[in-house]
Design a protein around this nucleic acid. Structure first.
Lengths: 161, 161
DNA sequence: TTGTGTGCAAAAGCTTTGCATGTTG
DNA sequence: CAACATGCAAAGCTTTTGCACACAA
């Protein structure tokens, strides 16, 4: 069972330039404009760690280096999802959360129902489930979302989120 | 690999009386009142098939036999989740969906990204992932949510939702 | 009778949309 | 310069909350 921390980039493979290039190409291929806002949002996301939601990203940008509108944030997040530079999740709440995904191992999430902490893990058996089920049900499985919900045996401080 | 349709009740085990009793006991144990609204909502859910959201349930009850408020619907849905009579899902949208769960096999979901169709499936390997990961990460895993997203190879009519 | 539950409507929280303005190609 | 993107605010949707009234225990 692999326990390589999923958040560690694949060895020596990732630079922000790569990510920017991918986005650039994606924009070009879809006749979308290369605006400074779009690159600034991408850069902010790849500077951040962890999971974030649109509002948090908006506030963070507003308070720091760059000023963008909420509309642009939402718009850009969708573009980045489309070219697989970020992935979208919902950890049991009606709030969309994102995380950067280029150059990171595929992984799933374990969420503490007490404190909301999110832990990442890898288990190759999920790939087997995807291929078996795709075959049996005659689907091309594109992606998946697996969340385990539970309680920390050590006991967490039950701090809310 | 088991291909028993997950939505079929476990043979000869389920009646609405069972479900009502479980709810009744749950209410009693928690010093909650046994109101006609709560039972009416439970009955409506167990009469329905498939997945549903709070608003659809509210509208459906409003238009038919029983009149309840949205607040009561949301309140009761939470109680039913607590005693495992229904389960909660989010199929990639900011909309909580529910399904009845008493007497049905544990199952997961395959969602068509084109037409939104939801197919249920069972794969025992998910249980193995839960126990392995709970052990390694020192968590008591309570429940999970696994959604595969993909495209029907037969091609669907791309009807929206 | 007492306190919990209900209904209604208002509020809250996240996301989308419309429109005037700005900027890329 | 024409089309597309941005910013802002308003609107949309789902869910939660506050309060007066009703009713289960």
């Amino acid at each position: 069972m692999s326990l390589t921390p999923p958040t560690l980039p694949l060895a020596g493979k990732v630079s922000f330039e790569d990510v920017k290039d991918i986005f650039s190409i994606h924009l070009g291929e879809n006749n979308l404009r290369r605006t400074p806002e779009r690159y600034a949002i991408l850069e902010e996301i790849y500077r951040r760690s962890d999971h974030f939601d649109a509002e948090a990203l908006y506030i963070h940008m507003k308070n720091s280096n760059y000023r963008v509108s909420r509309a642009t944030v939402y718009n850009t997040l969708e573009l980045l999802v489309n070219c697989d530079l970020i992935t979208k999740h919902q950890f049991g709440k009606n709030l969309t959360q994102y995380e950067k995904s280029y150059g990171f191992k595929q992984h799933d999430h374990l969420i503490c129902v007490d404190c909301g902490k999110v832990i990442e893990f890898c288990d190759p058996r999920i790939q087997q489930i995807k291929s078996t089920m795709g075959e049996i049900l005659n689907f091309k499985v594109l992606y998946h979302d697996l969340n385990l919900y539970g309680r920390c045996k050590d006991g967490c401080k039950s701090q809310s989120k």
